[in-house]
Nucleic acid binder design. Structure first.
Lengths: 198, 198
DNA sequence: CCTACCGATCGGTAGG
DNA sequence: CCTACCGATCGGTAGG
């Protein structure tokens, strides 16, 4: 059963890096030391492999969700904690962000369904929290809760997916670490400043 | 010469919608009413067609740039004008945004070079403007100018590229027009509120 | 601008 | 898990 996971890991890396169509079963198979017909024993078709990769990503996400919500529910710094958790989830492996970007671009209808089932319930919760903040005067009244949440998700996912590309704009000798720090800090600042009343 | 432009337009649409690898010369050719060998008379290879498509996009951008800078240089509402111009450029044809996203994902090194030559000089100007605003107390001192500009570009490009995907999160019966309005308004608000001092 | 055709490579199958 | 092999399709060429 370990070979199955090796295939999934290799496929995730390749799909994220070069896209589903540009990745061949041969290179995935030989990346884990087998031939492509052997790969097709574990996953009957290339598309089944793609769906399995996506499923694993989403199940990971479902594991993290409760922790995220606990963080949001309790005490202060709710915003900071949720935002940090979200950034951490994608930062832990940027392939997740890249894979999502590719799916959004290549199969918008399919990803729409996944959004409806996996993130819509969650965004509703966050939107309620934002509206409560607006009623209490902590959150700017001009905020459009749903649109705001979408923009923040956009910001996090695409920042991670395109990190390496914009290093040259930031520093003369961009180190992955420094670029990541500056981008994350600014991302959180932008999200925070456009939400809370001062 | 008009057929060349037809090919470019068709290729732009297809590359933006399904990606370079997933698009065949046959479908582009027959989209403009010719056979694929005839297409290869106008563009010797598929990769030459890709580069021509990208070049056309960038030359369009270079035409818009001066107007953008004039808008920024004169009078008040500098921020509002530049931001509006940028949004308008991509909104005029979302394929531009989708194409850029795909290139960033598929050929990061190549797009890095284009960024260095086509957007780095421009971001420097904007960053100078931001720093001047910070010195005068109009702009929040916590803003990291370079990182801020990158995040705003991210926000604009990816908002346009993924517009249709997130309609379901916004409204029960999402119309393209309404979704676009809400997303754009919130995008500009987020950018504005995280920049200026109040 | 076309038809005819090329080698290479793709995802997938047969059979062991 | 392998070798051997399949039809389909790809980008590209020859020749007119």
């Amino acid at each position: 059963m370990v070979i199955r996971d090796q295939i999934l890991a290799e496929a995730t890396r390749r799909f994220a890096a070069r896209g589903f169509d540009a990745t061949t079963l041969k290179e995935i198979a030989e990346g884990v030391g087998i031939r492509s017909p052997s790969l097709l024993y574990h996953f009957k078709t290339k598309d089944e492999l793609r769906r399995a990769v996506l499923e694993k990503l989403l199940s990971h996400w479902n594991d993290v969700l409760p922790r995220l919500l606990r963080a949001a529910a309790s005490g202060e710094d709710q915003f900071e904690r949720v935002a940090q958790e979200m950034v951490a989830f994608f930062a832990a492996s940027p392939d997740r962000a890249r894979l999502l970007v590719r799916e959004v671009m290549d199969r918008p209808e399919e990803i729409q369904a996944l959004i409806a089932s996996h993130v819509l319930p969650w965004t509703r919760l966050v939107c309620d929290y934002i509206r409560k903040g607006q009623a209490e005067g902590d959150v700017q009244s001009e905020v459009d809760p749903e649109a705001y949440v979408i923009q923040v998700i956009n910001l996090v996912v695409f920042s991670v997916a395109t990190l390496d590309c914009f290093g040259a704009l930031l520093e003369d000798q961009p180190s992955h670490e420094r670029v990541w720090q500056r981008q994350t800090a600014e991302l959180l600042r932008v999200a925070r400043q456009s939400l809370f009343e001062r």
